[in-house]
Amino acid sequence: MAQDPSAPAAVTEQQAIPLVRGVAFGEQEAPRVSQAATRLDVANLHAYYGARPALRDVSLTVWPNSVTAIIGPSGCGKSTFIRCLNRLHEVTPGARVEGRVLLDGDDIYGAGVDPVVVRQRVGMVFQRPNPFPTMSIFDNAVAGLKLAGIRNRELLREVAERSLRRAALWDEVKDKLHAAGGALSGGQQQRLCIARAIAVEPEVVLMDEPASSLDPMSTLKIEELMRELATSFTIVIVTHNMQQAARVSDYTAFLLAGEERVGELIEYGPTARIFTNPRDPRTEQYITGRFG
C-alpha cells in the first residue's frame, strides 16, 4: 500500500513495500550465523548530483545485527552512499539515484514507495548533534512519535525511557527530562539524537561520522553504544577515524574516488581482515595512512 507522501507515517503501521527479489549477490564473506534482523542489499547503485556522478556501481550487502563501517578519503562519496540508503540523497535538488537498495528484499526505490516510510525504517544520526534545542529532552526523545501523531502520554513516557536507556543516557537525564535538549553536553546531545532515532523502532540506523565532533570519552561512549545497538538494529556508520572503524565495526567497506572524482567500492569484507590483510593495494595504502 502506497502512502500519500505528504502524510506523516504512522509508527505502528507496517508499511507494505513492493518486493523486488531475485537480485544475485556475489560471495561477500557472509557471516556464518545470520540472525533474524534486517539486511540491506545494495545493487549497482549510482548516485548523481545533477549531471555529475558521485558514486558508481556500488554493490554490497549490509548484514543484519552488524555494524558496517564505510571508510574512504574525503570526497569519495561515503556520506552520499549512506544518504542513498534512506532516500535522503534525493532531497538535495537535482540529486538522483540509479540502482537498487533492498531492505530485507523490499526495494526502497520501488514504484510507489513512500520515502517517509523508508526513513522510518532506516533512521539517521548526523555528524553534528542536532537535538531540537529549545525542546525538552523528553520531547526530543519522542519527537518522531509525536510527528507520527501519537499522543498517548503513557506510551510516549514508556518509549522515551526505553529509548534513553538504550542510548545510555537515561541515568544522566532522568531527573531533568524537561530541561532543554540544547543544555546537554555535546556527547549527551548526540546520544539524545540516537535515542530520538531509535524511538521510532527503525530496522537500520545510519550514522554519519557520529563522534567526529566529540571528545574522546564521549566518542568511546558512542562506540560502545553502537555495539550495544547492533544487538537490536543493523548499523551503518561513516567514519574518517580508522581506529574507530576497526574498534566498532564487523564489516568495512572502502570507497575511493578516482581521477574522475566518482566514488567506487574498492573493497568490502570483515573488518578484522580489512585491517590486517586487505586484498587491494589501494585499501592497504589508505588504511596504513600512505594516502588520503
Binding site: M242, Q243, A246, T276, N277, T283, E284, I287, T288
Partner: peptide, 9 residues
Amino acid sequence: QSPLAADLR
C-alpha cells in the same frame, strides 16, 4: 603509531 595491515603484521 597504531599500525594497520602490513605495518601491523
